[in-house]
Design a binder for these strands. Structure first.
Lengths: 198, 198
DNA sequence: AGAATAATAGGACAATCATCCAACAAGGTA
DNA sequence: TACCTTGTTGGATGATTGTCCTATTATTCT
């Protein structure tokens, strides 16, 4: 019975729901307060569980982070597929990437880029975890590079992808530091022009 | 006697030396391990003091951070003055900014930008401290903007300064995430061309 | 229905954290 | 010399951290 439910779209067992809820809360908390700034207690309280219970799902805090990274990967991966379906022109697909940025400008201004700030934090003292978080950059880098290949830039597709990623990161950092949504709009508009010139 | 020594250039009293040593160690530790990743014990051990002694100089860890920010401000401010003296042409002065980045590429690749990563970390959970750390960005923004005014961009000098700062931040983030010094060189070369086109 | 497994409840653990204190030594000043 | 400020030593503080038990209850499978 439960096996059959699993084949259905959104039918999760009770445990799977709890686990997903923990990852949801942790994802938000890690984004808003950082990995180190979020304690086990914070996650426990946010997900409405008891201390010991969460340990039934994740052995360590690092395991929770890995699950959060996997969740991010799944969500962004879904977004990329969506963009590829919605737009057929390479440039239109690249512009969808910029639309995500402007569409999320409020949270970006308030908390910075979830991928960039996570990597920056983990890069300081947790190189092992940063390697896992780097996969999020890889995901975008490869997808963007594929678009530049579509545009005929076979030789420097990866360089262009990393250039675009870097520009986006820089915009996020400055917009976050100065809590300036207008700056974010202005700079993404410049990036848009850059894409259209490729 | 001690009063007279203070009027001399590099004559610090014993206490002032100890205090400067604490700030030195904290500056390095905060950069390499982050603010939250550095404990009081770490600072105490790195500066070769005893636990209680450090409290004689700084009441709280936040006070140490403020002193570290002030130290950064003083050092970068000295750098900016130096560049202004060494170069008279506005573009040459702007290129000196890029030379700092390429000159520090090894530490940038290893630990990221000291200003950017500090602001990113503090922006998560310590808005009060991030406001203090933002002064480091202000310092560069204002100096760069003054150079763009010299180049005749009176109206959008600040926008151009923030654009340049953002580009530099993005380069630092990506180069750090991928530990890629070549990427840093390649991207700064593009920024150099951008400056020369202004 | 009964057995096996998953999930919940609640507390305990040692370690580490920033902070603080009080006694002590040193050094310059009167 | 006596005094007072500055600096040193070394430990103690309570709060918080991540991790880990052990019962007990709920769910799932046969």
């Amino acid at each position: 019975m439960a096996r059959q439910q699993k084949t259905m779209a959104a039918a999760l067992s009770k445990g799977e729901q709890t686990r997903a809820g923990i990852v949801d809360c942790a994802k938000r908390l890690f984004y808003e307060h950082g990995y180190d700034g979020t304690s086990f207690t914070d996650i426990v309280e946010a997900s409405g569980l008891y201390r010991g219970n969460i340990y039934h799902y994740f052995k360590t805090k690092d395991d929770i982070l890995q699950a959060v990274i996997d969740r991010h990967l799944a969500e962004f991966s879904g977004l990329l597929d969506q963009w590829a379906q919605q737009h057929k022109e390479p440039k239109a697909r690249l512009l969808a990437f910029l639309n995500m940025i402007t569409g999320r400008k409020l949270e970006l201004v308030q908390y910075g880029c979830p991928i960039g700030s996570l990597n920056t934090e983990l890069g300081k003292d947790r190189r092992d975890l940063q390697e896992a978080a780097r996969a999020l950059f890889d995901l975008f880098r490869d997808w963007l590079a594929a678009r530049f290949v579509e545009l005929g830039h076979q030789d420097d597709a990866e360089s262009l992808a990393l250039h675009l990623l870097g520009r986006a990161q820089g915009i996020a950092v400055i917009a976050h530091v100065y809590h300036d949504a207008k700056l974010l709009k202005r700079e993404t508009a410049q990036l848009q022009a850059w894409i259209e010139a490729q």
